[in-house]
Simulated scan of single mutants.
Amino acid sequence: MANSTVTEFLLMGFAERWELRLLLSLLFLLMYLATLTGNILIISATTLDQNLHTPMYFFLRNLSILDMCYVSVTVPSACVNSLTDNRAISVAGCAAQIFLVIYCMYVELLFLTIMACDRYVAICQPLHYPIILTHQFCVWTTLVSLLSGLIYAGVHTGNTFRLSFCQSNVAHQFFCDIPSLLSLSCSDTFNNFILLVVSAILIGCGSFTFITVSYIYIFSTVLKLPTKERGKAFSTCVPHILVVSVFLSSTSSVYLRPSGASDILQGVILTLCYTIVPPFLNPIIYSLRNTQVKEAVMKVILRQYYSGN
């Protein structure tokens, strides 16, 4: 940051017109509140209900906690800035936001990969499930994901802010992200782009390949099941694949495209697909379609209702 002559960045916000900014801010705030509500219910249900103290719901609870943090990094500040038309963010604040977004993205992808592994073992190797998915395995994989995320986010953030920013300070995004800053830098950003490509291949493609192969085996096993059980398995597996595909494709489109050839509106829409949509949909896909979780959530809601009265 010592090489930066820019002392603050100006974020584009949601739109130029006040009416459109108000509409979009309210929409994103409603999605944010719905995301928080859904994930809080999942966390409460999987914590209070003893029947849900299994590896699957352990990872689900971790994913819900992460999703709440992930969506809280960008949406509240973006909505406030858009409504007040205060688009300035300090260099330190921008660095913190980039670090947290990259960290949450990385850990989210690892959690989705681990959950695919959990489903593979549960469906394809049910007899080995208690041996492989032990409590120790769950804790260690979670810790490795969280700690390695610090290194991953730290490397990308540090590599971005070693650049000089001596040109325009207007970032065409509603929060600080690496592609927007690379387009503003007056330094050579080739090494930064190579780092993004290599990490995308190793982490993104690696995780997507593992998840895809896991679900190929899962689908081949599910097709041998009775029709009733087959539909139940597909109802969870297919949305999981769709969310992972949207998450990875939108992230890759934003982070791996040439900075000069990007359309601003398209970039904002793609960014929404990996920052807001997955945390919003995850509670619906992984939990609220599950009978066990729905019953546990209803117990939590009724308990709160009767305790309030």
Rank of each mutant, 00 (worst) to 15 (best):
F234V: 01
F234S: 01
S235C: 09
T236Q: 05
T236M: 09
T236A: 07
T236L: 08
C237Q: 03
V238R: 03
V238I: 15
V238T: 05
V238D: 00
P239C: 02
P239K: 04
P239I: 03
H240E: 04
H240L: 05
I241K: 06
L242K: 10
L242E: 11
L242G: 05
V243S: 02
V243L: 14
V243W: 04
V244G: 01
V246F: 14
F247C: 07
L248S: 09
T251M: 02
S252A: 15
S253W: 14
S253C: 09
Y255F: 15
Y255T: 03
Y255I: 08
L256Y: 14
L256R: 09
R257C: 11
R257W: 14
R257N: 11
S259A: 14
G260A: 10
A261N: 14
A261E: 14
A261H: 10
A261K: 13
S262C: 12
D263Y: 06
D263R: 06
I264P: 00
I264C: 02
L265D: 10
Q266D: 08
Q266S: 13
G267L: 11
V268T: 10
I269P: 00
I269Y: 06
I269W: 09
L270C: 11
T271L: 00
T271K: 00
L272D: 00
L272C: 06
L272M: 00
C273L: 09
